[in-house]
Design a protein around this nucleic acid. Structure first.
Lengths: 153, 153
DNA sequence: CTGGGAAAGTTGGCCGGACAAGGACCGGTT
DNA sequence: AACCGGTCCTTGTCCGGCCAACTTTCCCAG
């Protein structure tokens, strides 16, 4: 044992919060992808579709913030979803450099599967964490987010 | 039951826990990458180096679990780090199909910068969340992880 | 001794996140 | 009218996570 004054950063195993968050995020993505793998949209696309189904046509930049993604990734993702017939692009009538994205009728066929998958995620989340616990975690993570975002300046 | 039961999954904005976790994970990665951007290792490599510095030479599979990554990603990442002179590969003497990875002397030059960056992350985390809060979050996320992992079977 | 399973590593491919750079378009200013 | 800054989108490039398939090696049961 190297006494107590390690000037070195703690090892990963002792940095639990950030590590746990990264692990949990990976598990969420992996599980969502797995639930939707069979005859559903490609992993990651379901989040965009949910926004479009729920809130109607959106500009790409709004989709980016809604699913917390990235403009280039959104451009390419939308393009792939367009090829798959899930989504349509339309130029904005008011601003020529905006692009409006809307879900196609065909995409509605996937909606039940997506809902099922997210209901399963919801079920897993609520069975492991009480509603009060979820609120606490949410408050903590929101605070953490604001600090991390501000430090990102 | 189409009555009061929500037939549709809640919109993203109403699924805060998973969404918040994904956002926080992205912020952590982005901030860690930004802190190390200048004359540090490439984002993502610092986690591998920390394990090697702290725990000595490791098999690739152990690095994978330590940084919660992926075998193919680790193979390619180690390869890139090898080209950058940060790391060395060595076949295991006991098992011919294992590969032992160790940090080079040259990599130690980066250690201070990595420690600084993680200290900053630590500072941001502790200033926004008390130690007790961190323990609670950790416990909750660990529970959530176990449930998600089990459901992933 | 041999066959077959298990584990570690590698490679190819797909996709999303990140950064950089650039084009298209709008608005207000001069 | 021409310029300018800002916003939105796009393309190029790199890297990591994920899946699938394969090779190598080990080890154990038959």
């Amino acid at each position: 044992m190297r006494e107590h004054a390690t000037e070195r950063a703690a090892p990963l195993s002792a940095r639990p919060v950030s590590h746990a968050i990264l692990r949990a995020a990976r598990l969420y993505k992996a599980l969502a992808g797995r639930l939707l793998r069979e005859s559903g949209p490609r992993p990651g696309q379901e989040r965009v579709l949910m926004v479009l189904w729920d809130q109607g046509p959106q500009r790409q930049v709004d989709l980016v913030t809604a699913v917390d993604s990235d403009a280039p990734a959104m451009t390419r993702g939308i393009s792939r979803m367009g090829k798959a017939g899930l989504v349509r692009r339309r130029p904005s009538p008011t601003d020529g450099c905006e692009v409006i994205v809307e879900a196609t009728e065909a995409s509605l066929a996937l909606r039940d599967k997506v809902d099922e998958a997210w209901a399963e995620l919801e079920r897993l989340t609520t069975t492991s964490l009480s509603a009060a616990r979820q609120r606490e975690i949410l408050a903590d993570l929101t605070l953490l987010e604001s600090v991390l975002t501000r430090a990102d300046s």
